[in-house]
Design a binder for these strands. Sequence first.
DNA 1: TTCATATCCGAGTAATTTACTATGGTATCA
DNA 2: TGATACCATAGTAAATTACTCGGATATGAA
Lengths: 153, 153
Amino acid sequence: MRFSTRGHYGLKAMFDLAQHYGTAPVPLKSIAERQNLSVQYLEQLIAMLKKAGLVKSVRGAQGGYMLAYSPEEIKVGEVIRALEGPVAPVDCVNEFDPKECDQADFCITRIVWEKIRNSIAQVMDSITLADLCREAKRRENEAGEELNLKRGF
Amino acid sequence: MRFSTRGHYGLKAMFDLAQHYGTAPVPLKSIAERQNLSVQYLEQLIAMLKKAGLVKSVRGAQGGYMLAYSPEEIKVGEVIRALEGPVAPVDCVNEFDPKECDQADFCITRIVWEKIRNSIAQVMDSITLADLCREAKRRENEAGEELNLKRGF
DNA sequence: TTCATATCCGAGTAATTTACTATGGTATCA
DNA sequence: TGATACCATAGTAAATTACTCGGATATGAA
């Protein structure tokens, strides 16, 4: 069981955009360098995110991408769903259009997949990009303090 | 994001075996019929489950498969891991051998994947085959009572 | 003894998905 | 006008999935 690199890389890109929220548009090239990804592949992923209405773009020189909303308003779940599709550990418990299954009424194992689906969705929908930025800042501070400790302060 | 049919079908088969626990060995053919699966594909899945030590087999006529332990002792997580491998939404948060990532120390999005991994594992490891059997029985009774209601009792 | 029933085991395979790359546009700023 | 970006489509090698096929081996029952 795994997510594809789309969700993996795409979330990195969105986190990067969140950290630059409010500044000039960020070109893909710089995201690619910071996050260690290929520009061409990123282009595909960001196109999906744009289609989903999560990012805006500015074309031409000095152009780039930016979040369509504030990091506080964008849930990780929206990002991942835009790239990976609906949460659906198995087809018959797809969160949006479950595939009809003749055994639906008496299939007990279905319970397991529903619970897995719900727990994944719960995690994804309870974290915003802003949460990730705060955590990043927290870690920076922590690292600084450790450095101070080392230095004897 | 999805599990493969291995986990899906394999769990069905294990639930079937759990419901026949304590009786004669159950041939694959009968599982295949009840759960609406192909015998030949099931053979592959049950081989993985046997390798993992979750089922025992009896060869020859009147042979078949049975759980290696009581349904109470077998967690859904063991079954799914035997068929799908370790829980690892992305490689760098594989629950057993995380793939080394040069960014591990400062990769913030990693937090998301770890939480998803943990929530999946938590669900899988908190449900036993016995739980599923109990739920099946509960539903049977419920259905019976509804029938009685309909009949005017 | 032999036959039907089962498990066992390895190979093969069509279809799909993944994770990209390549090419050639189009818009915009300096 | 040219450098910088976004935009769009196509192609593709590799891996994975979801199976099937063929045949060997074991065992209980007639």
